[in-house]
Structure formats: C-alpha cells, structure tokens
Computed example of a mutant assay.
Amino acid sequence: MKKNSLKKYYLIILLLSVIVGCKDKDTSSSSNNDMETSTDSERGNDSDSGDDLDVKTSNFSESDKSLICLWPKVGLRDIAGRKGAKYLTTIYFGETVKFLGEKETASDNKDYLKVELSDGQQGWVYDYLLSENGKLAVLKNTLAIYKRPDVMEFVGNKFGRGDIVVVLNESKGDWQKVTGFQKENEGWIQNSDNFVYDELDIKLAILYNRAINEDSQSKKQKKLKLITDNPAFQQSSFIDIVQNALIGDDNDAYGEDDFSELDASISSDQLYISTDVLNARSNPNSEEDNVVFQLEKGDVCDIIEKGNFETIRDNSSNWYKINFNGNEGWVFGYFTSKK
C-alpha cells in the first residue's frame, strides 16, 4: 500500500514538473519572439500582415506634450530599457505619441520615456528615436539644409520633394528648424511656404517612406502598389512620386543600370554602391543607431577589411569596411558590387 502511495506521489510530482517546464518554455519563447518582432528601431524585421501600412493619427490635445517617431520601427516595452523588458507593440515612423512625464535611465545608460499611444496603450521607448515639440509636414520642393539660419552655413545636403520632416518649435524670420528621417538631416531651411500639413498628403508620404526603406524589392513594390491603387491617394499632390518610384523599380528589374564600365575599371580591393542610398556604419551591425555617413549609387570605395557573412531580411552577403574620400565605415555587401 505504501509502495502504491509513493508511486502515485512521484507520478504527481513528475507531472507537475512537466507542466511547469512547458509553461516556462512557452513564456520564454513568447518573450524572445517579442524581442525579435520589434526592437528600438535597431531591428527592421517585418511581416506581411499589413499592420505597418496603417498610419495612426493623433487624438491628443494641443496641451499634451507629443513626440513623433523618426525611425522606421520603434519597440514599445513594459519597462525602461531592454534587459528584462517585454515587447508590447511597434510604433512606426511618423506616428505621434503622448509623453506622460516620466523619464528613466536604464542599465544600458540610455534614457527612456513613458508614452501613451493613440489607442491608450502605455509603455516605454528610447528617447533618441523620437522628436519632441514638433509638427509633421511634407515638403513641396527640394530645399537646402543650413547649419544655422544663414545662407553662408550650407551643409551640403538637401531635403527632396515629398520628404517628411518634423517642423520644430524654432524659427527666425522665414527660417525654420527641422529634423528628418532618423535624424540624418537636421538643420535650418528657408521658405516655410514649402511645408504641407494636409493629413492625406502626410499619410501618403509616410507610407511612401516606409515602402522605399524596405530592403526586400518584392515588399517595396508591393507597398508602393498599395499606395497607387488606393483611390483616396489619387487626390494627393504627391501621388506622382510613388508612381515614378514604381516605374524606376520596373526599369531596374530589367537591368537598365549598366555597371559594365565600373566592373572593368575597379580593382579586387574596391567595390561600388549598386543601390540608390546606402548607410555606412561605425560597426558591422544593422541593428544599431550607428550610421556615420551615406553613399550613393556608383560611388567607388576602397576595401579595408572583409567582415563576417550575414543574412539580413533574406539578403545574404559579407560586411565590408570601406574608405570613401577619407571617410571609413562598414557597408553590407549585398547592396554593392560584392553582392
């Protein structure tokens, strides 16, 4: 009798252990998946669910302190920092959130802000990835960027027609301070008549920006076509930008970019850029905020070092440390002649 009781006892303990173990595994898996689905802009994983095509409009009052997301995707988490934090949802480029007045420095020595989304969900985000006290606008025309509100302070960069900017609360005469996508371009521009605040135009521009920043050509074309096929956007004055991008993609698909002369002229320790714009980074990691400068299609770079082989969003290649006109950085080989 004692033996049977003892056996039953051990069986119950074993069964409980299995159940607890399975539960822990599911929790761990869920947590890991959350971390992989969306990170603080550093990760660009995407799904074809179409959720990121939804441009959320702000329902906050003017008295609320709002923040605008400047990165393609920013992870909202339940606590400040990444260590031990649970992913809640994704904030997309151009989305406005409300700052709830709480700021915390996490164990990674970064400052995080507590925010509320338009649907009422609350959580924490890395403060660098959002812009405070600004208003979204689309630019009608190409405009030069200046370091200060002075024509002598041209920095060499320009915003293009259809670019999304955050118009900051700093102005001087007809000068206005603005910041752009991923804060890559920030400074003063002249002629504020070029700012378009129309909600339809802003939504189109945001979706267009998300589309052209897709590394996967098929996803890029799919998202561009969704914009052009949407009857509402036919009324936008910027629909031609999307249509031209689709035509350009079709031309590229048929091989109209001829690099044969470059192929013949560069040496084995050089490479050229084969995509429109490519970020050069301080280290071979596309998941960090580490862009040091940008390269354009056809730029020829000297190779300093060949890095690790990696697959990023179904695109596989080595990383390369390059020198371009005295500037050094790492580029992903898939978007170069070393593809």
Rank of each mutant, 00 (worst) to 15 (best):
E153L: 07
W188P: 01
V196T: 03
I189K: 06
K219D: 15
D193A: 13
A232C: 06
L143Q: 14
V242Y: 06
S171P: 06
Y197C: 11
D201S: 13
Q221W: 06
F195H: 11
Q234K: 14
K220Q: 15
N169M: 06
Y208V: 00
K158W: 09
S218Q: 15
D198L: 01
T142Q: 14
K135L: 12
L168P: 06
L207K: 11
I145Q: 09
G187P: 07
S218E: 15
G156V: 07
G162H: 05
Q217I: 14
P149Q: 08
F233D: 02
E153H: 14
N213G: 07
G248F: 08
S192F: 10
V155H: 07
K140F: 00
A205D: 00
W188C: 03
N169D: 13
Q190S: 13
L246A: 10
Q190R: 12
N213D: 07
Q221Y: 10
L224M: 04
P149K: 07
N157C: 07
V165D: 01
E170C: 04
S192V: 13
N213I: 04
L130H: 04
N230C: 13
L168W: 04
N244S: 13
D249A: 15
G187D: 04
S216T: 12
I247F: 10
F181T: 08
A232D: 12
I241W: 02
D150C: 09
I202P: 00
A144E: 12
A211W: 01
L224S: 05
D201H: 02
K140V: 00
R148C: 05
Q235I: 05
K222Y: 11
L224Y: 01
D174H: 10
L246D: 05
D163G: 02
T142K: 15
Y146K: 04
Q176L: 14
K135N: 13
L143I: 13
F154S: 14
